[in-house]
Nucleic acid binder design. Structure first.
Lengths: 216, 216
DNA sequence: GTCTATATGCCGATAGAC
DNA sequence: GTCTATCGGCATATAGAC
């Protein structure tokens, strides 16, 4: 900590802002590289270069590569979970799910690196996130499963296992970020193309919604 | 996966069989490690140890780490694509898709490492598979899209973009292999559990099928 | 085909001046 | 906080004997 300035804690000084900016620059460069080459495939040299700082300086802000990686993961977890947090029982279920799909596809379009890094961590068994998964995430999913269960009991939704519905929502929306290379190879298009984005939103919404709608 | 080595075209001697066995042992150990730790996170030492050969010996069979990685990828591509290849227009569409989902979930259960390594490669932009993706895979997907299009034109399937339906099938089924850590953290169960496996098959089938069924 | 020994390069992290 | 210099370790790959 900076002992020369007692006001550091309250009002951010010019210096502390510069420090914060450097931290975010490093985190951003790390996310870009980790998500493409993996943690082991990325050297601190490259991260430093991407953030325009020296490697030694980087290690001043983050004491080790693992510490940096954990910081990156913590940063993106919120973005990733935000759409699910937004699900609430007082909404109309089909509208809520329609909204969720659009939101999550926006995340896939606007934060593909976060999505991919998260996926990569999961593939490896989530050694650094296992705690969060079994704690916070499980609670969140249990909570939202109860919401879905409620909708089903009110006859507003077809009887499906809530967990599997949540997995389907996750899988179908993330796919466009995580497998964007494949999507592009096959369709020749990207979510960044507005027409393709809207077509994707509508198709995913329709298939999922029709699959869980109640019919008379 | 269980394909025998074709290096010796005529009569396989005892020696050539031993050689083939070593190659597959190395490929198998490499798949297990690469899919968990990534290529960069795995040393040839560990692969050699896993295959019970010396590192120098391993490098006799595969001249470099990259050559080994490519060999592993080529091996699993077929397994991964087999279910899609099985889609044929003369089938009843809903039956065909129901079968596809079960087949692909069996792959997720029985070859999770292949699924994960494939996913990992995709996340990184598929530098070594891009050629295959834009060639063979694109042709296969175009072909199967035409099949789906045919079903739609015959009024046997709801009007959806075939590509998005294929992506949905891929995404929902692979999820249980690629994100098995998360699935297990949330549900406490695995596809290896027969009850959970069947529940998964039924739920995915129902949600997807209901989403694309034609109703009067 | 299989081994021992080793060349060679990179990378994470530390020491210490300023 | 930032720099230069460097240590120590590990990993890929090769050389050469058997």
């Amino acid at each position: 900590m900076n002992s020369t300035d007692k006001a550091t804690v309250k009002a951010p000084t010019r210096r502390s802002r510069a420090v914060a900016a450097k931290r975010t620059a490093i985190l951003s460069a790390a996310l870009a590289l980790f998500s493409q080459y993996g943690v082991h495939g990325t050297s601190l040299d490259k991260v430093a270069e991407g953030a325009d700082v020296s490697k030694t300086n980087l290690l001043y802000y983050f004491p080790s590569k693992e510490a940096l990686y954990i910081a990156v993961l913590k940063n993106i977890l919120d973005v990733w979970l935000a759409p699910l947090r937004a699900l609430r029982e007082d909404q109309q279920p089909l509208e809520a799910i329609r909204d969720y799909i659009r939101l999550k596809l926006e995340v896939s379009r606007d934060h593909p690196q976060a999505s991919r890094l998260f996926c990569m961590e999961m593939l490896q068994g989530a050694p650094l996130l296992k705690g969060e998964l079994e704690g916070d995430l499980k609670r969140l999913v249990d909570d939202k499963s109860a919401v879905i269960e409620g909708w089903i009991n009110q006859g507003k939704l077809a009887a499906v296992e809530p967990h599997h519905l949540i997995f389907m929502l996750w899988a179908t929306t993330q796919h466009y970020a995580d497998f964007s290379t494949q999507v592009e190879a096959v369709t020749g298009q990207t979510l960044n193309d507005d027409v393709f984005f809207n077509q994707t939103v509508e198709n995913v919404q329709r298939m999922v919604i029709e699959g869980i709608r109640i019919r008379e």
